[in-house]
Amino acid sequence: MNNINAPDIAIETKNLFIFYGSFAAVSEVNIKIEKQKVTAIIGPSGCGKSTLIRAFNRMNDFVPSSYVTGEILLQGQNLYGKNIDPVEVRRKIGMVFQKPNPFPKSIYENISWGAKINGFKGNMDELVEQSLRGAALWDEVKDKLKKSAYELSGGQQQRLCIARTIAIQPEIILMDEPASALDPISTLRIEELMQELKKNYTIIIVTHNMQQAARVSDYTAMMMLEKDGSRSGTVIEFSETKKIFTNPKDKRTEDYVTGRFG
C-alpha cells in the first residue's frame, strides 16, 4: 500500500482503529506521512476522514466513549502510549478547523496567547508579525492588531487561525476542511498559503473537494467505507496524488475520482 520510497517520515500509523463505544469508525489504517509535504485525505462524507485526522492530535479524547487501538508514531513515540500527555501532543501537532474559530480576543492576543501559555521567551511582537506574515495576513491587519478578531472576514479569520497555529511552531499542521466555509477567493489564498507552509511544516489536510486535493497535495489517502457493510471507514489507497488521480490501483478510487461514485 505504501509507495513512499524516501523514508523521511513525519508521522505514521500502524494498524490504527478508532472506536466510538463499540463502533469502529475507522479501521486498520497504515499510512506513513512524509515530512514537509502536503498529504490529503479524501473520500465520501461519513467515511471517517475527520475522525482520522482528529486522532493525530488526540482531539477525539473529548468524545467520552472514544478510544484507539494500534499506534500513531511521531518520531518513534506512540501518541497513544501510556505516558503521553495529550497537551504536549497538541503542542507539537497543531490544527486548523473547518469553521474559523478565532478566540474572542484581539488579533494580536489570538496569536500571542498560544505562545504565552507555551512558555515562549522571545520577542512577542516579532513573533506576531512573523506568524501573520507566514499566514499572508500581515498586510491586511497590521494597522488593527488591537481590534477584535471577530471584525475580520471569514477568510481572514481562517488565516488568523493558521497564523496562531504556526506561532507555536508545531511539527505538523492538521487541516480539517479548512476552506469549506470560505468563498472561492479565500479558498485560493489558503491553498497558496499551504504551498508556502510546507516548506517548514508537514501538512495533513482533509478535504471533500477532489480538485483541491489534486491542486494542493503531494500525497493522497483515499478513504472509503469498508465493503463488509460495517460502516467503518478505512484507507483503501495511499499514494502520490498524481498516481491517485491518473492511475489509481483500486477500482473504487477510480470510480470516486472520476465522479462515478454515488
Binding site: F62, V87, F103
Partner: peptide, 20 residues
C-alpha cells in the same frame, strides 16, 4: 469550536476554561 481551538494550541483544560 472555541474550546477545540484552544486545545489544538496545546492548552491545558484549565487554560482553556479560564482564558478562553
Amino acid at each position: 469550536a472555541l474550546r477545540e481551538g484552544a486545545y489544538a494550541m496545546g492548552a491545558t483544560k484549565f487554560e482553556t476554561s479560564v482564558q478562553v
